[in-house]
C-alpha cells in the first residue's frame, strides 16, 4: 500500500494540486478567485508533464562528450511542451482578467451571486 503511494507520488501531487484549483473554480463566487483557481488547476497538469519526462537513472539532457555510449538522458520534450502550455495559461488568465474588469465596469460587481441576480432582473 505504502509502496503504491510512494511509487505514484507524482500523480498524487498532481491530483491534489488540480483538485485544489478545481475546488476554487467551483466553490468561490468571486470571479478573480475562480480565475486563480483555474491557474492552479493548470499548474497541476504542468507538474504532471514535467514529472513524466524523468527517466530512471537519467541525467540532464545535455549531450555527454567522449567515449561513453550508454548514457541515459531524461526526456526533454515534455518540458518544451509545457513551456508552450504555460504561455497559454498566462494568456488565459489575462483574457479572464480583462473580461472581469469589463464585468466590474458594466455590472458593478464581480461576485457570481450578485451577477446572477442582476441578470435575472434584466430578463
Amino acid at each position: 500500500m505504502l509502496d503504491f503511494l510512494h511509487d505514484h507520488y507524482n500523480y498524487w501531487v498532481t491530483i491534489i494540486i488540480m483538485m485544489i484549483g478545481f475546488y476554487a473554480v467551483v466553490a468561490k463566487s468571486n470571479l478573480v478567485k475562480k480565475a486563480i483557481g483555474l491557474g492552479i488547476f493548470q499548474t497541476g497538469i504542468f507538474l504532471f508533464y514535467i514529472s513524466i519526462g524523468k527517466v530512471d537513472g537519467g541525467t540532464a539532457p545535455v549531450k555527454v562528450m567522449g567515449e561513453q555510449t550508454d548514457v541515459v538522458y531524461s526526456n526533454p520534450l515534455p518540458h518544451a511542451l509545457i513551456l508552450t502550455a504555460i504561455v497559454v495559461s498566462v494568456s488565459t488568465l489575462a483574457v479572464a482578467l480583462a473580461i472581469i474588469v469589463n464585468i466590474r465596469e458594466k455590472f458593478g460587481s464581480i461576485d457570481e451571486h450578485d451577477l446572477n441576480h442582476l441578470e435575472a432582473e434584466q430578463e
Binding site: 488547476f41 493548470q42 479572464a96 469589463n102 464585468i103 458594466k106 441578470e119
Partner: peptide, 17 residues
C-alpha cells in the same frame, strides 16, 4: 448586452477546464 461578458467568462472557465 452586458450579459455577453458573463457568458464569456462562463465559457472561459468551462472551456479552459
Amino acid at each position: 448586452d452586458r450579459r455577453a461578458l458573463t457568458a464569456a467568462i462562463n465559457y472561459l472557465v468551462l472551456g479552459t477546464i
